[in-house]
Design a binder for these strands. Structure first.
Lengths: 329, 329
DNA sequence: ACGCAGTGTGTAACCGGTTACATGTCTCAA
DNA sequence: TTGAGACATGTAACCGGTTACACACTGCGT
């Protein structure tokens, strides 16, 4: 037996489909009698409305597309948790569309969002503006998260990477560190670029301070490798700022293995404040990731529901958190 | 200007909608000329097929519902990562439906999956069989993950909790621990129950071994609280097995604060092998969570695509990982 | 000449809802 | 008695695709 449709319900309740629809959607003008008959039939048949059909005729899906790069770990789960909170509060479901690096399939998958979602939250810090424009489905409201904006084509919400990196720079300068190393993130990544640039700008304002920047890829392993290379190069340094916590943790391991004291010989700082940072006493920049997700989705839903356009661009604040790896042991 | 429809494309290309549809779906019997005209029109209009309309007429959505409890952290991101891998490989999108504890909305949200997904992966270790039956949408293929099965109504894939707990028990017995504590998970949770039960069964086979079980809720905090209470109660113990790593980490903190040596005075073990466990040297049971997600989704897609029913029930293997908190310091 | 098979295309029904509009009934005032 | 107005209900068009079926055209064998 196939699934019951609204017409099955109508014929069992001896009313028209219009009446069934009205009862189901809580429309006022329905007699008590009709309401009861319909309710009974719905229960008896175990009827559940068909979402695709409803979407088609109402042009609303009550789903929001979430487009994310190949994320792992805390960052992913936190941002989704924030979005999920808002989504379930406001009656939406989240449709996940991961953007696997270099997958041509990913692009077409995105366009397939048309007719499936009422809007999309897009986080793609590794895409250029042109790639982005070519990838996004047309006619779907978009909010960009942490992604290069398209000069006002879509509202964008970004982390205040510059402020965070500057705060770390100032902190290290205040500690009187002179030979500073920055382990940067992948070159194509917008967050990584902003952090590196702001950090360099501020740190080189210090008197007699040298800065050396090496490249990583945001993985713990790459942080470890980078520091090991520096150690063997004999190049002296007394502070390391990694573009994210993962790499900072890798750096800590390399230093520990080499017997360098942290923070006495080398101060270490990261970015993100993942839970592990707290356990390891890592100085870092706290990013309220879940809040970023919440805020992004709220803004998007506001525009989807027509409650006015959000401002073109917002910076999400971050906060310096000083812990043992730069403070007292 | 509204979005282009297939009829707009048809009229611009001077062909019928049927031909457009055939071209778009790579149907063979189309003349070269028609194909070109349609391709041109599609490009010119920026046409993208409307997913809801397609779903409705084809009765396929190419989406899979993922129903998860209020998860945070690694467990969530890992399981989703595994599913996502399979999903994008096989051309599906994931629709996330979190089951917030005690939210009546959650239930109705689940039924709303009808017409939106081709099947659902359901993980709800806190629901009873009856609750589950009342919550699931009818007529949608389901695979249960780590959830009390409904005696064969749906295929189920579960962690081999019993094997993991037994392995920990044997390990502790081999270390000659005599006064063992188990910090259990929430009482309504199926995983927690299985772990507690199997652990108790095996550990009490040891000669002259006592077991004390206290209750936690899977949070780090609750592990800390439990151990602190035990310490102040003066009750002696030389081993702690927490039902998950989070609680084990809390336990470690409480022990460290009290100055108890780990593993000399008290051996500590957890369950899950979250990344932090490796960093802290926590002995635990490794669960390949991403694999669980991959496997679950593969099985589900097989049944959705009619490649035969998976076995009614599968146990996902786990593995003991011995580290510093029970081994040599 | 005819029938027949094969090929490409178009027409229209259908998927399962929503909803504008028409219809029917009832009440009450003129 | 009649007509207006309020109200509940039903009919059918519509959302945007897919596809069964009908049709027209071609080239072939007899």
């Amino acid at each position: 037996m196939a699934e019951a449709t609204i017409r099955d319900v109508a014929s069992r309740a001896q009313v028209s489909v219009a009446s069934v629809s009205r009862v189901l959607n809580g429309f006022e003008k329905v007699s008590q009698e009709t309401r009861e008959r319909v309710t009974e039939a719905v229960a008896a048949l175990g009827y559940v409305p068909h979402a695709a059909a409803r979407s088609l005729s109402m042009a609303r899906t009550h789903s929001i597309g979430v487009v994310l790069p190949d994320l792992h770990g805390e960052f992913f789960s936190e941002i989704v948790r924030g979005m999920d909170r808002v989504a379930s509060e406001r009656g939406y479901l989240l449709l996940l569309a991961s953007l696997h690096a270099g997958s041509p399939l990913g692009t077409s998958a995105l366009r397939a969002l048309r007719g499936r979602v009422d809007g999309a939250l897009v986080m793609a810090p590794h895409l250029s503006e042109e790639e982005l424009a070519a990838t996004l489905p047309p006619g779907v409201p978009i909010v960009l998260l942490n992604t290069r904006g398209q000069q006002g084509r879509h509202p964008a919400i970004s982390l205040d990477n510059a402020a965070g990196a500057r705060a770390i720079a100032e902190h290290l300068l205040a500690l009187d560190r002179k030979r500073v190393v920055h382990i940067a993130g992948p070159p194509g990544n917008a967050d990584a670029q902003e952090r590196a640039q702001a950090f360099a700008a501020r740190v080189t304002e210090g008197h007699g301070v040298t800065l050396q920047t090496v490249e990583g890829d945001f993985s713990e392993r790459s942080g470890e490798v980078a520091v090991t290379a520096l150690l063997t190069s004999q190049e002296p340094f007394d502070a390391v700022f990694a573009a994210n916590d993962n790499m900072a943790i890798g750096a800590l391991q390399a230093l520990r293995q080499a017997g360098r004291q942290v923070p006495e010989a080398v101060a270490v700082a990261g970015f993100d404040d993942i839970p592990m940072a707290r356990h390891l006493g890592l100085t870092t920049v706290q990013v309220r990731i879940a809040e970023l997700g919440e805020f992004g989705l709220s803004e998007l839903l506001d525009t989807v529901e027509g409650r006015g356009m959000p401002p073109a661009s917002t910076l999400h604040p971050v906060e310096l958190v000083v812990r043992a790896t730069t403070g007292q042991a």
